[in-house]
Design a protein around this nucleic acid. Structure first.
Lengths: 216, 216
DNA sequence: AGCATCTCCTTAACAGCGTTAAGGTGTCAA
DNA sequence: TTGACACCTTAACGCTGTTAAGGAGATGCT
């Protein structure tokens, strides 16, 4: 009979475990009871560390953000275009790293101030490149909103990189849209190669930032 | 004793009622039992008309889209810029018309082919303006993803145009970010005047479409 | 007229959810 | 030895989406 006592939980261990579990069961399967079972604990124990489930989701989002920072090398010599591309590619990669990652992320708020250094660095780089502070903020937000929207949609259609959700039979779609030739032809373009789609849209946003604020 | 018999339900009546109720109770309060009560019916009755709750949410999203089309006047003489602006302003307005509108919308798929005529019209206008079909699709998608991401965030912070969610005290934020002057100063810019923010980002996207595809 | 069929809804129930209340056990300090 | 505190358990509550089974009213067939 083992008298080994499990080390006490802390917020980070809970969030890490929950993130790992998220990839196995998805957001709708991510119940407090399942997380607790994984931690060898009963569900109400989690309420000692988090005031409710949303607080745990907030911590998970913060941890996702930390891992995104760790996975995105920010070179101070980046041009503003490179920086915008890098941060948004990094954001997408981080979100795609978890099933329903975008939903978890955009439904939550960060718990600390850990996002401040990166925000500061990006604002500094863009203002140094000639943007006003307001322009830098608007540019970053526009790109971020695009990325969040894109990945949310991407993960809604293709939850973990596998099959499509039902109702996406291309042949049947083309038949239904026979009276709308452009829309029908667009079908193959609409659902293929998300990497290319994302890069294309991101390039549009970056080009727009340069064009609208007159900075190249 | 009234022998009046309620007219039988249909999918549209259910979806309409659910949309009205959504604005009173929000997505998390939108239970099948609450919807059924509103329709003077018991919850399992809804399963006669919808195979599950997601099917009802899909119908609601489709109805939102119909109302967006009805509220957006599409002039065939629009320039491509005007068309992009109009459709995305209309999309945002439609989403903002319902509590958690963006979440309902982007978590769902349309039920029919009713989106096809508008899609066809937009693709026709953009290709006539000189875009290739692939470019037109990419341009429209980029703008739509931006709008969906933006409104999702907007409604997450300010669920129905009222107060902010807790944790958005500006003074306290500035104090915490004392070591990050640009980030601190950006605070007032970050959370003010969503209309202006949205228009600015949309203008960036439209400018980017023109710049990247060389069409003005 | 009588019987069957189909539509639309009800009653009853199930497993599972987030959450709260109350209490127990181990550890460390006085 | 006593008390306080950190951390977790057991039990329960009201709620959820969903299924199974069946009943009432209209419609059509013989």
């Amino acid at each position: 009979m083992s008298t080994e006592r499990r080390a006490p939980l802390d917020r980070k261990r809970v969030a890490d475990t929950a993130l790992r579990l998220l990839n196995e069961v998805g957001l709708e399967g991510l119940t407090l009871r399942a997380i607790a079972r994984e931690l060898d604990v009963k569900a109400p124990a989690l309420y000692w560390h988090f005031k409710d489930k949303q607080a745990l989701l907030d911590e998970m989002a913060t941890e996702m953000y930390r891992r995104m920072l760790a996975g995105t090398a920010l070179d101070p010599a980046d041009t503003w275009q490179e920086r915008l591309l890098k941060t948004n590619r990094g954001l997408r990669a981080a979100l795609l790293g978890y099933r329903d990652g975008a939903k978890v992320f955009s439904g939550s708020r960060f718990t600390g101030t850990e996002h401040a250094p990166a925000l500061e660095a990006n604002l500094r780089l863009l203002t140094a490149a000639g943007f006003t502070l307001a322009q830098a903020v608007d540019a970053g937000r526009t790109a971020t909103m695009y990325t969040l929207g894109f990945v949310t949609e991407e993960q809604g259609v293709r939850p973990l990189g596998g099959e499509h959700r039902e109702g996406f039979d291309m042949e049947e779609r083309a038949r239904r849209l026979a009276r709308f030739p452009l829309a029908a032809e667009a079908g193959t373009l609409l659902f293929d190669d998300y990497d290319r789609q994302f890069e294309e849209g991101l390039a549009v946003v970056v080009a727009g930032v340069g064009a609208r604020y007159g900075i190249s």
